[in-house]
Simulated scan of single mutants.
Amino acid sequence: MLKDQLRDFIDRATERGHVGNDDVAMLQDEILSDGIASRLEVESLLALDRIVTAGEGWGAALTRLVADFIVWKRAPYGVVGNDDALWLATLLEVSGPSPNATNIAYAILDEAGHVDVALLDFIMRGRQQARLSQMAA
């Protein structure tokens, strides 16, 4: 279930088509002060990320919130198992590996003691796509 405050935040940002730095501060300090609590919240925030423009603080805040949830709020702590890695990699892959999606994957890789290969595959596919894009340019 999505918290009412988070649903309202997403609805307002979607209507405006933008997440400003004041919105990011409210998200971190009030709405998700204890962090993300469910996969549905992750899915909703990543969907929002794909459809709005954002101030400079958005990417870092989204990355921290998602990485903290995946690494430290899912048992076993500090380990990203196959189920979570596959779910998240699939979610991050929607619309291609965006800069925020890539940053989230790397942040998880940096924080976790163990990361399942599904998330590593996402990172490698993104790196390969970036190389191919550079070669084509």
Rank of each mutant, 00 (worst) to 15 (best):
D83M: 02
D83R: 07
L86E: 10
L86V: 09
L88C: 10
L88T: 02
A89Y: 01
T90D: 11
T90K: 09
L91N: 00
L92K: 10
L92C: 15
V94R: 15
S95F: 04
G96V: 00
S98E: 09
S98L: 03
P99H: 00
P99C: 03
N100W: 04
A101V: 12
A101D: 15
A101T: 11
A101S: 15
T102V: 14
T102R: 06
N103S: 15
I104H: 04
I104E: 00
I104R: 05
I104S: 03
A105N: 07
Y106T: 15
I108W: 07
L109T: 09
L109I: 04
D110V: 06
D110L: 05
D110S: 13
E111I: 01
E111A: 12
E111P: 08
E111S: 14
A112P: 02
A112F: 06
A112T: 10
G113E: 08
G113T: 13
H114K: 03
H114I: 08
H114D: 04
H114F: 09
D116S: 08
A118H: 02
L119N: 03
L119W: 00
L119S: 08
L119C: 08
L119H: 05
L120P: 03
L120K: 06
D121M: 05
D121Q: 10
D121V: 02
F122T: 09
F122Q: 12
I123E: 02
I123C: 07
M124P: 08
M124L: 11
R125M: 08
R125E: 11
R125Q: 09
G126E: 02
G126N: 04
G126R: 06
G126F: 11
Q128K: 15
Q129W: 07
Q129G: 00
Q129M: 05
A130R: 15
A130T: 11
A130M: 14
R131V: 08
R131K: 14
R131Q: 15
R131Y: 14
L132N: 13
L132I: 03
L132H: 06
S133M: 06
S133D: 07
S133E: 13
